[in-house]
């Protein structure tokens, strides 16, 4: 293998890593804002991603059946619908289940795990155990070849762009909107936020729903790089937790950096080693770093 071939492989694996990075980042963002706001570890987060993925599948089938001419465009609408559906289910889950369990971290862990199992069964009963794939629009297929032997897949670039957009949106919402102000005040001091007039319970529900909505978008992105089954989401949940812990809980910048690091280590080493060895290498690196810096990559430096 020549040096330039090696370089191309490195670039392509790096880019494959970027797709993984996108899904992990979107999952991690949702988990991080939910954990930061109310200390809830949402074990069902992966299933909210699956909701997004199945939404794309359903809309793709509907479009194919009823309006085949719209096939090139349905994807944009579908992403928004994926957000809305995951948001709505998250809103209801918070109202029916989670809000009764605040300040009981172990119970929320169990309850959301139960929720995740229940949702998986609902997916299985509705869509069947077999994995499905939506028909992607033509323009998402194929690849861009800027140089000989170097192929950058278009769907990967699309997912990247989508992730950048959503991440920027989350930052903007957190730092510029009234909701963001409520969230940051509540994270800083819940009792005081309530005593200054903020309805913290409503803020909790909104935050949980937004976090789930972002997972729905992650699911939409996921359909472009993999096929969807009832347990697709649970495959990503462990990695998404790793991203949040490694990045430093409640630090969005940390979430971005750690999603990037984990995805790239995983993807690049996967090419040179076997898949499981790559996983071992990733985990070993993370554990070593967490032993030295238990607070994660980025921790807040303000006195509390």
């Amino acid at each position: 293998m020549s040096a330039s071939e090696m370089w191309n492989i490195f670039l392509m694996q790096g880019f494959a890593g970027l797709s993984l990075f996108s899904v992990l980042l979107l999952m991690g963002l949702g988990l991080a804002i939910i954990f930061g706001q109310m200390g809830v570890i949402n074990m069902a987060h992966g299933e909210f991603m699956t909701i997004g993925a199945y939404t794309i599948f359903m809309l793709s089938s509907l479009t194919e059946t009823y309006a085949p001419t719209l096939t090139p465009y349905y994807f944009f609408v579908a992403i928004i619908v994926a957000f809305i559906l995951a948001f709505a289910v998250g809103w209801m889950a918070e109202w029916a289940l989670i809000r009764h369990l605040y300040r009981r971290p172990l119970d929320t862990l169990l309850a959301t795990w139960g929720l995740s199992l229940g949702m998986q069964q609902i997916f299985r009963s509705t869509f069947g155990a077999k994995e499905v794939s939506p028909t992607l629009p033509e323009w998402l297929l194929g690849s861009w070849a800027p140089a000989e032997g170097l192929d950058i897949p278009i769907n990967g670039m699309f997912v990247m762009g989508l992730t950048l957009l959503v991440t920027a949106g989350v930052f903007l919402m957190l730092y510029r909107s009234r909701w963001g102000l409520r969230v940051r005040a509540t994270v800083s001091n819940r009792t005081m936020a309530n005593a200054i007039g903020i309805n913290t319970k409503k803020t909790d529900r909104m935050t949980f729903a937004i976090g789930c909505g972002i997972a729905g978008v992650a699911g939409a992105a996921f359909t472009t790089i993999g096929s969807t089954g009832p347990t697709s989401g649970s495959l990503y949940i462990v990695d998404a937790f790793l991203v949040v812990t490694f990045g430093g809980a409640a630090s969005l910048l940390g979430t971005v950096a750690s999603a990037f690091g984990i995805a790239q280590t995983q993807s690049i080493s996967e090419f040179f080693l076997t898949g499981s060895m790559a996983k071992v290498l990733t985990l070993l690196t993370i554990i070593t770093i967490l032993m030295i810096r238990p607070q994660g990559l980025f921790a807040l430096k303000v006195r509390r």
Partner: peptide, 22 residues
């Protein structure tokens, strides 16, 4: 409150804005 309990991670301007809920 006693001990002031301002939001340390928010700017002064944002601290004041939290009171504008109603």
């Amino acid at each position: 409150p006693q001990g002031r309990m301002i939001f340390p991670t928010l700017t002064v301007e944002e601290n004041l804005k939290t009171g504008l809920e109603n």
